[in-house]
Design a protein around this nucleic acid. Structure first.
Lengths: 238, 238
DNA sequence: CGTGCGCTTGACAGCTGTCAACACTTGTGG
DNA sequence: CCACAAGTGTTGACAGCTGTCAAGCGCACG
């Protein structure tokens, strides 16, 4: 969900090609609405942003969180989600224009492609997290995403509330709360108030989430389900 | 999931710009593997294709079905999913090349953007189907997708097996089977063997799926949850 | 006609949603 | 500084739904 973080190199390239406007939003404020004409895309400078959809019955569903360096709102035609500020945020804002127009400069088009591809892989990873897995497994996978975002620090900040996490993982706030307690009881994390946790057993957390600490299987002795080899595809070709 | 169907106009454009090779696969055959270098993308000419991912624990998760006119495999770098033939299929196959290279012709790049955007909105719609909804609701939403694909015909063909549907909706085959029975018992569909159903109550099915027959609310008297207005976004801007 | 696979259905256990109560934090006003 | 209210988060009880296990049916294929 934060795989959309851009590498510094990409940021510089984007800065060199595109003109940006800096905007600020307060926590809870709407940045753009679902269905609105997609005329701009955004990059988070500071703070946390969430994108969400609303269902006919009133249910809300978050499709991702975006942190410093992440890009959101790169839709075509109309925004497929709404975007809201989770904390006070600063964003840079770029004109989309119509990227299919002949006049669109080539570098901008390349960036659009790269952004879309990254967003796509994010969405697929996210689909996967939600597929037929328990609340504790989903939360573990989510926390690992946040941890990856934070770097080597075992302390992970949680700028969003439990309700936001619940709507992202398609659970209720209650179940999320219970899952936090369960991970804590198992000794995988320590809950530090509402806005931070410490990962005390990274390997255990990865194991629960169904991920490897390094991202791929590097120990040939590791026991894998026979079908799991397909999980990694043809490594020699990658 | 079949939102990736291309309009006839787009197909002609693609034919005019890109060279294609026609390939055939037998039912169950692998078209490409997850993690394999993404060197080609495909368009279905005839038959049905599924894309899937495998989890460490051996679980399979389908990310979409693709029918005549649909595009799949438009990934960058490595394929994020495997692709397999559900039925005997005929596909057209195009070189991806490196779409970020300067040498890539402009029309191909435009097509890549259009395809990615369509795939993105498909993935988001699909995420939404799976979010905190019952088995019957998911199946209803899925069947409506297939029906939209089929056109006005109330009879909907199901080229895929129950297990495929289950892995798409993140359910078990048993629950899918029960959901079919439930929809039938409620009088929304009639099950005709294993490979076809008839939608007998389209409005009821849409209602259950949380969708409107026409795609948007056109009856102001319809009772909506207060938050649901956001579901449609800013209509005046669309 | 027989076999095998896909599918359906039932029984039961486990997990998650719902309802409810309560603790804690935050913000407002006195 | 305190009192109070509102919002957020935690926990328990319970019901409902789905996964698991198991049995059996029916279609397809040889």
């Amino acid at each position: 969900m934060q795989a959309q973080r851009t590498a510094p190199a990409a940021m510089q390239e984007r800065q060199s090609h595109l003109r940006a406007t800096t905007l600020k939003f307060r926590a809870g404020q709407l940045i753009f609405e679902q269905g609105q004409t997609a005329s701009r895309w955004f990059e988070v400078v500071q703070g946390t942003v969430r994108t969400c959809r609303f269902h006919i019955d009133g249910n809300r569903h978050l499709t991702g969180f975006f942190f410093s360096g992440d890009v959101f709102g790169a839709d075509h035609g109309a925004y497929g989600t709404a975007a809201e500020a989770v904390t006070d945020v600063v964003v840079r804002c770029f004109r989309i224009g119509d990227i299919t127009q002949e006049a669109t400069p080539r570098p901008q088009l390349d960036e659009a492609v790269a952004i879309l591809i990254r967003a796509m892989s994010t969405a697929q990873r996210y689909q996967f997290i939600m597929g037929r897995r328990s609340a504790a497994e989903r939360l573990a996978a989510f926390l690992l995403c946040l941890k990856q975002q934070a770097g080597a620090d075992p302390r992970v900040q949680l700028p969003m509330g439990r309700t936001d996490i619940a709507d992202l993982l398609s659970l209720t706030m209650h179940t999320v709360s219970r899952a936090f307690s369960e991970l804590s009881r198992r000794g995988l994390i320590e809950v530090e108030g509402r806005r931070a946790i410490v990962v005390t057993d990274n390997i255990g957390l990865c194991d629960l989430a169904g991920e490897y600490p390094s991202g791929l299987a590097n120990d040939p002795d590791t026991q894998l389900h026979p079908a799991a080899t397909r999980c990694f595809g043809n490594l020699s070709a990658a």
